[in-house]
């Protein structure tokens, strides 16, 4: 990926090279994975813990209570520490990788709280279904990962009614029909808003990262 000038204002030890901010977080993750580098992990924690919490609990999102969001932060960052050895910066940006861990963690938590188990004989776990490991995947033509900043900017550029449904889906964890019910819209409208949003983002998602 092209090196770019950072707009970052990292506190303290600013990274010398010119590179994207995503790459800095990825590099820290690699350090945690390869050297169990605690200083690197602490910097990741200071950056991501408040974002993870804010993703689930903020003025505009109340998917979780503050306490539950704190608990989730602990669990997610714990898994980040443990799984950092399998982080591959060529496959995903730090944000995306942490997002997938966070999502799985949240599914785990919600599942544990709502045990309607007929679990006898069921060995399948969250990480089996939402499995991002390369072994579980078909051969995909190696694609360059997109700049996470482009994606965030693309999201900000969506019409509000489109970004709203995406936020409800991702941050509040609502299904399309739950969103439709909550907003008093036909299901078809929610579906088409989602598709329109994806179409708008597609240019960014499929082109920007090209070499």
């Amino acid at each position: 990926m092209m090196a770019q000038v950072t707009r970052t204002d990292f506190n303290g030890k600013a990274v010398q090279q010119t590179q994207t901010r995503d790459d800095d977080w990825s590099r820290l993750l690699v350090q945690v994975g390869t050297h169990r580098d605690r200083a690197a992990f602490e910097r990741l924690f200071h950056h991501y813990a408040p974002l993870i919490k804010g993703f689930h609990y903020s003025r505009s999102v109340q998917a979780f209570s503050a306490e539950a969001a704190d608990e989730l932060v602990q669990e997610v960052m714990f898994r980040v520490w443990r799984k950092a050895t399998s982080f591959d910066p060529a496959r995903a940006s730090a944000n995306t990788w942490i997002y997938t861990i966070m999502r799985n963690c949240r599914i785990d938590m919600l599942r544990r709280n709502s045990r309607r188990q007929d679990a006898d004989g069921c060995d399948v776990e969250v990480d089996d279904i939402w499995d991002e490991s390369p072994e579980s995947q078909p051969l995909v033509v190696l694609q360059h990962k997109r700049s996470q900043r482009d994606i965030a900017e693309g999201l900000r550029g969506l019409p509000p009614e489109q970004s709203h449904v995406l936020e409800k889906a991702y941050m509040e964890g609502k299904s399309h029909s739950e969103i439709a019910e909550e907003l008093g819209l036909p299901l078809g409208t929610v579906k088409s808003r989602v598709r329109l949003a994806l179409k708008k983002l597609e240019t960014i998602l499929s082109k920007r990262g090209a070499p």
Binding site: Y48, A49, P50, L51, I52, K53, G54, F55, Y57, S58, R59, S60, V61, A66, A69, D70, V73, A92, S93, N95, T96, W97, I98, Y99, T100, M102, R103, E132, Q143, K145, R146, Q148, R149, I151, A152, G154, L155, R156, L166, E167, Y170, M171, L201, L205, S206
Partner: peptide, 19 residues
Amino acid sequence: EQLNEIGGGLLEDSAPQAT
């Protein structure tokens, strides 16, 4: 994977809340 990237983008853009 692209949909995960949207998740990553939303994470980056979340309003940070102090832990």
